[in-house]
Simulated scan of single mutants.
Amino acid sequence: MAEKHVLGISGGKDSAALAVYVRQTHPELDIEYFFTDTGKELPEVYEFLGRLEGFLGKPIARLNPRRDFDFWLREYNHFLPSAQTRWCTRQLKLAPFEQWIRPMLAAGDTVTSYVAIRADEDYREGYTSKHKNLKVRLPFREDGIDKPGVMDILLSSGVGIPEYYDWRSRSGCTFCFFQQKIEWVRLKERHPDAFEEAKTYEKNALEHGSPFTWTQGESLTELEQPKRVIQILTDFEDRKARELKRRPINPLRPVELLDDIDDLYGVDEGNGSCVVCHK
């Protein structure tokens, strides 16, 4: 029997900062890092994972080598995942993690899983352990580290943040249904092939009787129409201006754009996304 320490990397800023933080504060721990790959990640995510591996000095294990998004989409009769039916989180994130640690628990090992929930996220809950030997720790909450603290960790370490934060608020699957409409517009601009693939998935889903489209209330074909794109861009810029206007100026942090990406993108439609995916 042994003590194991595992830490999941989502490709987002919080889990990356946690990996850096635990390595810096507890260098004596032999952490096993893992990434549950949907097979449909942004290329920026893989670039960031490589950068993070360079800092950590060890590889990040990739889970899901055989059963990716396309496999499970067929299993669910081409019905798209949605906020009401999150089969992607269950099959592509939680199940691979549980399968990965099962041999450790079966051997009688104690496994401690470190989860990146910040001190300013009282509304979030982490993974709930179903095994007596699986312990869950929330170091950021324990040590009072909030969103600005996460940014400080990443920037001071030199790891930085993923490039997709220039236009998107979270990691996870390329066509995550928690994206805002503005993020779909940006996906079409930055990765048109991925947008077209998402349209194909949506068309097949509707033909198979799925009640869901990727984004609530309209299909991607409707969303990409020029007049609709202009409306989405205008609405976002108006909301962004209101958010920046109401935000108090912090003289110690004159530039706070990086700290508030979630506020600018995810305050409305993006709320409620899965911790295990985008953190």
Rank of each mutant, 00 (worst) to 15 (best):
M1F: 11
A2Q: 14
S10H: 04
G12E: 10
D14Q: 06
A16N: 04
V20N: 00
Q24C: 04
T25M: 14
H26I: 03
H26W: 09
H26R: 15
P27Y: 14
E28R: 13
D30H: 14
F34V: 00
P43K: 09
Y46T: 06
F48H: 15
L52C: 01
I60G: 02
A61M: 09
A61F: 00
N64P: 01
R66L: 06
E75C: 08
N77A: 12
P81G: 03
S82V: 02
L94P: 00
F97Y: 05
L105T: 04
A106D: 13
A107G: 04
V111A: 07
Y114W: 15
D122R: 07
R124G: 00
T128S: 09
T128Q: 14
S129L: 01
K130F: 04
L138C: 03
R141S: 07
V150K: 13
L155A: 09
G158E: 02
Y165P: 06
D166S: 13
W167P: 04
R170V: 02
S171I: 08
T174R: 12
C176M: 14
F178A: 08
Q179P: 05
W184N: 04
L187W: 11
E196R: 13
Y201H: 14
K203F: 11
E207R: 13
E207A: 14
G209R: 09
G209Q: 01
W214S: 01
T221K: 12
L223M: 12
E224K: 11
E224S: 12
P226V: 11
P226I: 14
I230R: 13
T234Q: 10
F236P: 02
F236T: 00
E237N: 09
D238V: 10
A241C: 03
E243K: 15
R247V: 06
I249K: 14
I249C: 06
P251V: 04
P251R: 11
V255R: 10
V255P: 00
E256Y: 15
L258D: 10
D259V: 09
D262K: 11
D268M: 08
V276E: 07
C277R: 08
C277H: 10
H278S: 15
